[in-house]
Design a protein around this nucleic acid. Structure first.
Lengths: 234, 234
DNA sequence: CCATCTTTTGATAGTTACTCTCACTTGAGA
DNA sequence: TCTCAAGTGAGAGTAACTATCAAAAGATGG
């Protein structure tokens, strides 16, 4: 009854991606409509398994905690074998971190005026997206996910890394916008900073019991990035 | 032969701390002089064990890679039991990430003029510190550590989280300087952003084979944080 | 120098997150 | 209905940890 473990890049998760701002578990909303490929039976079953695993896992985590819940239990609750579990979520943490919103973000940012400061574009888009997420998804489930993400160290770790995913995306967008190479230190630092702000905001929100308006917090966080240089100068 | 694992907050490492910018393995330099408590025999032995473990581990990693090197092997090479290994480094990744420079950083920042923008203080101090590190420590060893940190996913993860340690420290310093509470979102975001910049710089350096001047890179990175708002506005 | 107390160590026996392989089932397509 | 590919389950294995407890070795007081 202990021992979290594991934090490794998932070798190749067929699922969307991980992000610093976890969100919809299986949120059937505008997302499905977008990628509304007429799912085959096989694909529907897979999706269902994935959702069941995530739902059962979340339930167990809430009931008995992260560490006390083993992969075997989750698999049993979802009525699949442990082998299958690992096929869907190569690492346990992924249960909380996989996300479906990233592609939307990219498109929305690309749609902003090209002469707008990138940070402003990002802020507008992200704040808007968060508002939509909160509207679509049960606030409680989102909160539970973030609460776990913020309180379970190994998840927190993975969330911070999760920076990985959206950071890469932010980086690409930045490169497009500025015309600079994505490898440039300045761009990498910028993407990392924005990503860190996202993560920090999520954690802050969870730390405060989900009482604040997440969208407002995010807005505030990204604005304070703009004023970094003044801070402390009195 | 695979499977890295583990990424958990070390319960209570008696050692200094982890940072986003790994550094001296056993660098006997100005550090020892500072905290020059006349080490007892016990403490000297502990220090030695710690250094041996780290040195042997690094050697093995370089020879056969991170994943192929097991904790048992490291323990054997250092001639201690696996139990002992875990007492010194609760998680394998800590071998690369623990650091002895953090306290110096804190003192140096506190010594800066109080009406200076915090980001400037941080930049001056950090850049200076890095120059000292490079002078004291073998460049090659430092580079090897960073190369591993940047190429081994689980280490990279922990490094990004490693934000943890120095971020906490930066946060405290920020709170002191501004008089605001350390829990404030703005401060948390600022600390996270600076920490992310540090990490990103280290990774960039390692990605580029350690050819650039790390101190210059850091300077550049922290300066670009100051100009976030202009980026992309053309 | 000795006896005692405390810290550090090693051995042993778990637990659990993962990996690999292979045989079996089940949906898809002709 | 037959065939093939994709998905699943079972079993055995690896390695990073944790817990416990007894033995070794440094610190301390006389």
């Amino acid at each position: 009854m202990t021992t979290p473990r594991s934090a490794r890049p998932r070798p190749s998760d067929s699922a969307p991606g991980a992000t610093g701002t976890p969100s919809a578990a299986g949120a059937p909303g505008s997302l499905e409509e977008l990628a509304a490929a007429p799912l085959s039976l096989r694909e529907r079953k897979k999706l269902k398994t994935r959702q069941t695993l995530r739902r059962e896992a979340l339930r167990l985590f809430t009931e008995q905690g992260w560490e006390a819940t083993t992969v075997d239990q989750i698999a049993a609750a979802a009525e699949v074998s442990p082998s299958t579990f690992f096929r869907y979520f190569p690492v346990k943490e992924d249960l909380l971190l996989t996300d479906e919103y990233d592609p939307l973000m990219a498109d929305a940012i690309r749609a902003r005026p090209k002469d707008e400061p990138f940070l402003t574009s990002a802020r507008e888009v992200l704040v808007g997206l968060v508002r939509r997420m909160l509207a679509e998804e049960e606030r409680t489930e989102l909160y539970e996910r973030m609460r776990l993400a913020s309180s379970v160290p190994s998840v927190r770790v993975r969330m911070l890394e999760g920076s990985g995913q959206p950071r890469g995306m932010l980086l690409d967008l930045l490169a497009e916008r500025t015309g600079l190479d994505a490898g440039t230190l300045e761009l990498r630092v910028t993407a990392a900073a924005i990503s860190a702000a996202l993560t920090e905001t999520s954690l802050y929100w969870a730390d405060h019991g989900g009482r604040d308006d997440l969208a407002d917090l995010l807005d505030q966080a990204l604005r304070s990035l703009q004023h970094l240089q003044e801070l402390g100068a009195r």
